[in-house]
C-alpha cells in the first residue's frame, strides 16, 4: 500500500510517525502544526493516497518512547562529564532548530536501532540532527548566560533575538529563577509571560508584545549596570589576562544578547579603559 503519514510537529507526532514509518518504510511524510494545515498541504499537493495522520490527539510520550526505543529509552547518554539530553528532550530540541526538517528527524529516529546511536553521529542524518540539538542547546544556554532582563513596569523583561525557537524555554527558565516575580520574554511582536499569576494572567502564556507597552521608552542604563561595571573592572589584572579563554567565555556571537554583555565583550577585546578622572590625578 502507498501511504502518506501526516504528523504533527511535536514530540508525540514525531515519535508516532517514527513508529508508523518503521511499519511502512516506503510511506511519504507530511508534517503540520495542526489538522487544518495538514489538510491544506494534502489538498495543495492534490495527491490521492491513503493518509494516516498521527500526533493530533494527546498521547503519553513516555509510553511512545518506550515503544520506539525499548524500556531503557530514558537512560541518559553521557559522554564523559557532558550529560546529553534524554530522547524526549533531544526531539524537542531538534524541532526547535530554525533549519529543522521534521521529516528528516522522523527518518533519523526510525532508522536508529538504539537511543545511543542518535548521539554517536554514525550516519550523515544522525550527525545533522545531533548538531541541530547541540546548536539549539547552545543558543538557549547562551541566552541564560548573556540576556540581561530589566524591570519594565514591575515585570522582569528581556528582549531577545534568538537564532532558534527557544523563547518559551528561556521564559520558563527565567520564571523558575525568579519565582516571586512576573517575567516576560519579548521577541519581535510576541511576548512570553512567565509567573503571570502575579499580574492576574495564566502562569505561562503568549501575548503580543504591545501588551507590555512600548519598550523603547524604558531607560536602559541603571544603577545595577554601573555597579556591575565596577565589579567587572575590579576583577582584571591586565598582565595575567587569558584573552583566548576570555573570548571563549564571552563569544562575540552571543554578546549582542544584551547591552551589558556587549560592553563586557568589548572589554575582553580592548581591555579596560584607564581614562578616568582618578587615573588622571594618579598619573
Amino acid at each position: 500500500m502507498f501511504l502518506i503519514i501526516g504528523f504533527r510537529t511535536n514530540v508525540e507526532g514525531v515519535l508516532l510517525a517514527c513508529l508508523k514509518l518503521r511499519q511502512l518504510p516506503d510511506a511519504h511524510l507530511v508534517y503540520a502544526k495542526d489538522l487544518e494545515e495538514l489538510r491544506r498541504k494534502i489538498d495543495f499537493a492534490g495527491v490521492k493516497r491513503d493518509l494516516e495522520h498521527v500526533g493530533f490527539e494527546p498521547v503519553a510520550i513516555a509510553h511512545l518512547a518506550e515503544k520506539a526505543f525499548g524500556k531503557h529509552w530514558y537512560h541518559h547518554v553521557n559522554h564523559s562529564c557532558r550529560k546529553e539530553p534524554d530522547l524526549i528532550h533531544y526531539i524537542d530540541l531538534v524541532l526547535r532548530h530554525a533549519k529543522c526538517e521534521p521529516s528528516e528527524l522522523v527518518r533519523n529516529l526510525s532508522s536508529s536501532e538504539s537511543v545511543t546511536s542518535l548521539y554517536s553521529g554514525k550516519t550523515q542524518l544522525q550527525r545533522k540532527c545531533y548538531r541541530y540539538m547541540r546548536e539549539v542547546r547552545l543558543s538557549y544556554h547562551r541566552l541564560c548566560m548573556f540576556a540581561r532582563p530589566s524591570f519594565v513596569r514591575g515585570i522582569l523583561t528581556a528582549e531577545i533575538k534568538p537564532e532558534h525557537r527557544v523563547e518559551d524555554m528561556f521564559c520558563r527558565w527565567l520564571a523558575k529563577k525568579n519565582p516571586d516575580l512576573p517575567v516576560a520574554v519579548v521577541h519581535g511582536d510576541k511576548a512570553w509571560i512567565g509567573n503571570g499569576n502575579f499580574i492576574g494572567l495564566d502562569r505561562f502564556m503568549v501575548v503580543t508584545s504591545s501588551f507590555l507597552g512600548d519598550l523603547t521608552t524604558v531607560k536602559k542604563s541603571d544603577d545595577v549596570e554601573d555597579l556591575w561595571d565596577v565589579y567587572y573592572d575590579s576583577q582584571m589584572i591586565d598582565s595575567r589576562r587569558n584573552k583566548k579563554q576570555a573570548k571563549k567565555f564571552q563569544p562575540w556571537s552571543a554578546s549582542s544578547a544584551s547591552g551589558m554583555s556587549m560592553k563586557d565583550r568589548y572589554k575582553v577585546e580592548r581591555g579596560i579603559s584607564p581614562c578616568k578622572l582618578g587615573d588622571f590625578f594618579e598619573m
Binding site: 555597579l227 565596577v230 575590579s234 576583577q235 589584572i237 567565555f249 575582553v268
Partner: peptide
C-alpha cells in the same frame, strides 16, 4: 560602590585563568 570595588579587587588575585569574572 567604593567598598565593593575594594573587596572585589581583593579577590582578583585568585581568579582562576583570568578569563572573565568568577565562574
Amino acid at each position: 560602590t567604593e567598598r565593593m570595588h575594594y573587596l572585589a579587587s581583593g579577590t582578583k588575585y585568585d581568579s582562576c585563568n583570568q578569563s572573565a569574572v568568577c565562574h
